[in-house]
Nucleic acid binder design. Structure first.
Lengths: 245, 245
DNA sequence: CGACTATTTGAAGCACGTCAAACATTGTGG
DNA sequence: CCACAATGTTTGACGTGCTTCAAATAGTCG
């Protein structure tokens, strides 16, 4: 009924890039039926592991994109900035996601670590070589990119046609699915209100007000140090349309 | 100064997928240094040409994506629909663009011809075979997809952080660049007001009002049968921020 | 503890949406 | 080729959801 959920949720699948059988991974080190980007031994061996502190910039929008990064742990924010300071967060990259492959040799957004991050850095040249040597790698990367495209399309639908409350609910539920929840159903929300606002095309005040409203309505519970509980994630997601009064 | 223009405009390049020299097209029939998707002889020979009348549906959101389409002429609208009728246009596909390649075997949006359209249809299976036989094809498709991703990111920035006037100006100037203009600087605007509104996350009335405002301000001129003139496209694009009073 | 920053809450304004009606354009049958 | 219906577009009046501006409160880190 609701396009954000009509099709299989890409978010749940993002970190499980299961290859089709006719596309079986042919890595020497990886004879399994499934090879995920964050697990792919070829990428891990070809690149250099780097660590970034919270707030560090991996690369700047517009800079020459000489390296690409495979996120291993932590969360990276990708954002574009307008001249007058307006900012749009284009994505949050989670473990298994790849930053950033583009036809032109420039980065399409600024990438910053919003938590401590470890990532594999590979020079673009090296990666191109690798892809011609290991053909299945190209398919794997294509899958990751298509996942990102699908995520961006969902975000687009949210910004274009959802109310502020629906957007926040969409953000919370998709982030919960991404990060997974502990036995109590809680998860960390490492993004600041400003990050959330810039991701959803809202202001910090609106995001804050809506989170308060959801809290008052009992739809979510806030724990210390930014942890959050969504008691009934299923209902919460399905409720996106029903505005919390 | 303005992120929509800070980086090279991907729109101008969309239909000219020039291959890098180290990625030279190796088609038997295509020894040139440049092979564009809409010109690629391998795709043209492998697929079947189909024609669609204005309003015809190429495929529905969620349906099994057994075929992909290379747009040869005309314009295709890709849109998602919410259960309550709200619609978001995710893209307009122009000649040279490809519809729609996705990891899951379902279409990510409904594709409809908004003008008469001719497109090459290739079964997904056939295309996969083709890509393993003709390696450079995979790179070409990757480029097309990355172009689409970049276009979607721009649209996202527009919906998230531009005012209604800025969005309409962005839409008009990018469409003008896509379609090219005749000697008088005029071009067809085949999208309806509803299409534009759903593309920009606005209402039909707001779009109409803003177009009238731009007309009154002399920034654009409307000709019969939906043709439009932007006298100074450079200035018009640069002016995105300066709201027309 | 105390300075600093992030978040929340409040009050007021405005950009865009909604509802409604006039107007223009397109297509169709007489 | 002209009614004339049907559809798309424009314009107006009014309402509202989100923003803006401002200040209080909570959380964080030295």
């Amino acid at each position: 009924m609701y396009a954000l959920h009509e099709t299989r949720d890409p978010i749940e699948l993002r970190n499980v890039h299961t290859l089709k059988s006719n596309d079986e991974c042919g890595h020497a080190d990886c004879g399994k039926a499934a090879c995920t980007s964050d697990f792919c031994p070829v990428i891990h061996e070809a690149g250099k592991s780097k660590t970034f502190a919270k707030g560090d910039v991996l690369f700047w929008d517009g800079d020459e994109s000489d390296y690409l990064y495979l996120v291993v742990s932590g969360i990276v924010r990708g954002s574009k900035l307008l001249g007058d300071g307006r900012r749009q967060v284009a994505r949050f990259a989670f473990p298994g996601d790849i930053l950033e492959y583009r036809r032109q040799w420039n980065y399409p957004y600024t990438a910053e670590a919003i938590t401590p991050v470890t990532a594999i850095a590979i020079s673009r040249q090296r990666f191109e070589q690798l892809m011609s040597r290991v053909p299945c790698l190209r398919g794997l990367v294509m899958q990751v990119i298509l996942d990102e495209l699908e995520g961006t399309r969902e975000q687009l639908l949210a910004l274009g046609r959802l109310s502020a409350t629906e957007r926040v609910a969409y953000f919370l539920s998709s982030t919960a699915r991404h990060l997974g929840r502990d036995s109590e159903g809680a998860f960390d929300l490492p993004m600041s209100r400003q990050d959330i606002a810039d991701y959803l095309g809202l202001t910090i005040e609106t995001v804050s007000r809506i989170i308060s409203k959801l809290k008052r309505a009992g739809k979510i519970r806030l724990l210390p140090s930014g942890r959050i509980i969504i008691p009934d994630l299923e209902e919460f997601s399905d409720d996106l349309l029903a505005d919390v009064a």
